[in-house]
Design a protein around this nucleic acid. Structure first.
Lengths: 212, 212
DNA sequence: GTCTATATGGAGATAGAC
DNA sequence: GTCTATCTCCATATAGAC
C-alpha cells in the first residue's frame, strides 16, 4: 500500500469519524448549543481539521441535518403513500417507524427544534418537491373514503389521521426524559421495553379507533 | 404620585416587559440560541437593564422555563389524576390541553428541546415531588382496571395510554412547521382551524380506540 | 492531512455617569 | 432605574509549520 493510498484511507476514515461525532453533538445540543471543540474532542482529532474537511460549522451542520431528514422522511412518505391496504399499512408504518427511531432516538428532538428555530433557512434543506409529489393526504383520503364506504372503518379527516399516526410514534422519543419521570421508567432498557410494548399495543389501538 | 412611586411603577412595568420579551425569544430560539441583545431589543430597553433585573442570562432563562412548566404540567397532572370517570376525563383533557396549547403554542418545542439538551440541570427545575405524588399512572391504572372489568373498555397498559393521550395533543404544536408542509396548510388561521377540527375528532378517536 | 498558534468577532457581564 | 462605554472571555475561523 503506497503512502498516497494510506493518506486517502486515513482521510476517508477521518471524515467518517468527524461526521459521527458531529451527529452525536448536534443531535444532543442543536446547532446553537454545539461547539466545534466538542465535536473535535469526540472525533479525537484537532479542531482545525473540522474546517479542513467542512469549511464551516454551518456546512457541517447541513450535512448532519440533511442526513437526519434522509433517514426519516423518505420512509414515512413511501410507507404512507404506498398502495397497500389501509389496515396493513398502519401495521407496517408503526413497526418500521418505531424500529427506525429506536436506531436514531435523538433525531426527533433534533429536527423539531431546528425546524422551529430557523424555519426559513431549514425549509430549503427539505425535499419539498418530493413531499408534495408523493401526496400523502391525497392517497390516504382515497383509501379512507373507500374503506369507509365499504363500512370497514369510520370516516376521519385524512390530515387528522396522518397527524395522529405520526404523533403516536414520534412523540415518545422527543419527550423521552419527561416521560421517564412521569412514568417512572429509569434507564435505557426500561425505555426500550416500553417501546417494544408500544409496538404491540399501538396497532390495535389505532385499528380500533377507526372501527365503525 | 411621588417620584418614588413612579419609579416603582416603571420598574414593575419594565420587569414585565423584559419577561414578555424573554419569553418570546427563549421560546423561539432556546437557551443557547437566544441573545440578550435580541431580548433587550424586543423589550425596547437597554441590554444592561436585563442584568440589573435578572443578574444573568441563566437566571432570566430559569424564570421563563419555570413559568412554561407552570403553565402546562399542573393542568396535565390535575386533569389526569382527578377522580372523574375515564370517558369524561378524556374529553376534558383533550379540550383543556388543546386550548392551553393554542394560547402557548411555542412551549412544547421549547420544553422538549431544553429537557433533551440539559436533562441534568433542568430536572432540578421540575416539581418532581408533585409529579410522583399525584401518581398519574396509579390513578389511571385503577380506572382502566375497573372500566375493563365492567366491560366498558379494552385493557391497555396505563403508561401506553397516558403516552398516547399526551402525544396526540402536544405533537401537532411541536411539529407545526413540518406538518404545515406535509399537509399543505399555510398560515395561522389554517392551523387554528386544524386544531379546532382536532378537538372534535380526537375525543371519538380515543374513546373508540378503547372500545372493547 | 494533521497539527500549533493566532486572528477576529461576538456575547455576557460590569462600571460608572446621569 | 436607565443609559453609554468597556471589559473579558470564548467560539469560529485561518495561517502556516510539519
Amino acid at each position: 500500500m503506497t503512502k498516497k493510498k494510506e493518506q486517502m484511507a486515513e482521510g476517508q476514515d477521518t471524515e467518517k469519524k468527524i461526521l459521527a461525532a458531529a451527529r452525536r453533538v448536534f443531535h444532543r445540543r442543536g446547532f446553537a448549543g454545539a461547539r466545534m471543540q466538542e465535536i473535535a474532542d469526540e472525533a479525537m482529532i484537532n479542531k482545525a481539521l473540522l474546517h479542513y474537511y467542512f469549511r464551516s460549522k454551518e456546512q457541517l451542520f447541513e450535512h448532519v441535518f440533511r442526513e437526519a431528514i434522509g433517514y426519516t422522511l423518505p420512509m414515512v412518505m413511501q410507507t404512507l403513500s404506498s398502495e397497500v391496504p389501509l389496515e396493513e399499512k398502519i401495521e407496517k408504518f408503526v413497526h418500521s417507524y418505531l424500529d427506525m427511531l429506536t436506531e436514531h432516538p435523538y433525531i426527533p428532538a433534533f429536527v423539531l427544534h431546528e425546524i422551529n428555530t430557523e424555519p426559513g433557512r431549514l425549509l430549503s434543506m427539505l425535499p419539498i418537491g418530493q413531499i408534495s409529489e408523493c401526496d400523502i393526504p391525497g392517497v390516504l383520503a382515497r383509501q379512507i373514503d373507500v374503506a369507509a364506504s365499504e363500512g370497514r372503518i369510520r370516516a376521519i379527516p385524512p390530515r387528522q389521521f396522518i397527524t395522529s399516526l405520526i404523533s403516536l410514534c414520534v412523540f415518545p422519543f422527543a419527550a423521552r426524559p419527561l416521560l421517564q419521570i412521569v412514568l417512572s421508567m429509569q434507564g435505557e432498557e426500561e425505555f426500550a421495553a416500553f417501546i417494544q410494548e408500544r409496538k404491540k399495543t399501538l396497532v390495535p389501538f389505532i385499528l380500533n379507533a377507526l372501527r365503525p
